[in-house]
Each structure stands twice: as C-alpha cells, then as structure tokens.
Nucleic acid binder design. Structure first.
Lengths: 129, 129
DNA sequence: CTCATTGGTAACCGTGACTATTACAGTTTT
DNA sequence: AAAACTGTAATAGTCACGGTTACCAATGAG
C-alpha cells in the first residue's frame, strides 16, 4: 500500500509488488482482494493492468488497512464453555470483553492517526533519489 | 490470575485452576512458570502446595501479565531482506517500526490502567453467592 | 482474431505455533 | 514412607499462514 502511495496514483502489477516484499504474487493478490472489498484499491485486469489506490492516500489511515486485511478483532477470547461451578470462570468472559474493547479502541485511535500519505512522505524524505 | 485475586491470597493448585479454564494442569503450570519469573506469583511444592499471588492485586496491572505471558512485542515486522532496488522496501522497516512503537505504547497505556483487583471486584459485584 | 499479460481463485503442501497429554524427577506435608 | 504438588521434557494433534502451482476471465496490442 505504501508502494502504491509512493508511486502516486500509478498502477502497479501484483508481480512488481511481490518483488518489493520478496514474496509470491498470489499472496499479494489475496491481500489486494481484501483491500479491494474494503474499497481501498482498484484492480484492472488485462495486459496493461495492475492495482491502484481507489482513494487519495490522505484519506486512508493505517486502521483502514488493518481492518481490511485482518478481518476481526486483534484480541480473541477463547469461547470454551465456562466451568459452571466457578464464579470467576462464569463471569470472566464478560469482564474481559469489556476490558479488551477499551484497549482495542486505544489501538484503533493510534492507527487512525497515521495516514498512508504520511508514510509515503517519510519514505520520500529519506530517499536520496 | 483473576481466580487467584478473587480467592484473596489463598493458594490454589494448578489442577484446580485448570478445571476453571477447562484445560490441562500442565498448561497452567507453564503459564505460572512465566508469571513466576516475572515475580507475579509464587508456587509451593508439596502436599498442601499451590500458587498464590506474590504481590497485592492492586499492584498488578494487565500489562504486567501481558508482558509476562507474551514475551515480546504484539506486533512483529517480518525480517525478510529488503529489495535493494526499491526505495519503499528499503525504508519501510524503519518507518513501520516507528509507527508500531507508537500504537504499542497506546495499547500498553490502556492495559496499565486495569489492575487485577479491578477484575476481582467486578466479578464479586456480579456474583450472587 | 490471436495472443501475451494480468487479476481472481481454488487446491495443496510444508512449516511454525500452540494445546493437550503423558511421563518423570524433585519437594514438602502428613 | 506415602501422597500431593510443582517443574519440565517429550510427543502428538490441530490450526493458521505462506508459498506454490494451476486454471479461468478479462483486457489490450499486434
């Protein structure tokens, strides 16, 4: 995503992006699929195809990307059946959920503050060429 | 840990704790081992042995537990070699590390705010017996 | 039209992390 | 001595994820 923002608006093929992160094009396409469903990127098939940002990088935060690629909550509470004869076990899930919801909000707020354009700027600032 | 705080100061065996979370005593002992190294619990072998909190539950935060159980950072940056011919790939690790360090701090601050005694109180409040 | 290039997706394998389980040694109380 | 506990090692099973191959659909160049 940062690469897309860096090459402002231009379309890049999945193989090119794959080389950038040293992985397989299919992995990239899987990610682009999720990002596409979230409305962050557009893909064009065909000979001169590729992927490009669907919105301006100023309007995309890291939280948008996080939500798109990691489906659900970063924290998960195991849903084993509680031990009915234990007061702690019975109430724990409810209590933990409330706490984790708070720290999730804190994390989200932090990620919301960083826009994709910020990352691109930082890269440009430290790029000699 | 909440169970230990709930049964204020009393010692509990790993098998008892295991039944509470519906798992195997060995799993509990492995966790207690880490918590012990972090100075959060004490364990006593022998016939009337078990584990107990090493500090008052008011002085233990969820962040303490998190650090003790999960060794390192919740976020990890893959340490694949960067693609030297790509400016983004070369600078990305540094930029990402700085950003993630911020959100880690946010998460830590949120977990620091919750003390073990808070959880025990909440359980007691909603416990009829 | 033909064909090369690309995205999209399914199928499969290998790997790494974690849980569960068994087993055994060491310690402490009875 | 016996019982009950911790601590730890070894093992097997499960699950998620990355990597890979393969195939289809779409698009643009010739």
């Amino acid at each position: 995503m940062t690469a897309l923002a860096y090459h402002d608006g231009e379309s890049m093929s999945s193989s090119l992006l794959a080389r950038s992160v040293q992985t397989n094009p299919v992995v990239i396409r899987r990610l682009l699929g999720r990002l596409g469903k979230a409305g962050l990127v557009r893909a064009h098939p065909g000979k001169a195809g590729g992927a490009e940002l669907a919105r301006r990088p100023e309007s995309i935060t890291l939280m948008d990307i996080f939500r798109a690629v990691e489906g659900g909550s970063p924290f998960s509470i195991p849903d084993k059946p509680a031990n009915k004869s234990c007061a702690v076990s019975c109430r724990m899930k409810r209590v933990l959920a409330s706490v984790l919801s708070e720290t999730e909000k804190a994390m989200a707020a932090s990620l919301e503050k960083v826009r994709l354009s910020d990352l691109a700027s930082e890269i440009r600032a430290s790029d000699p060429g």
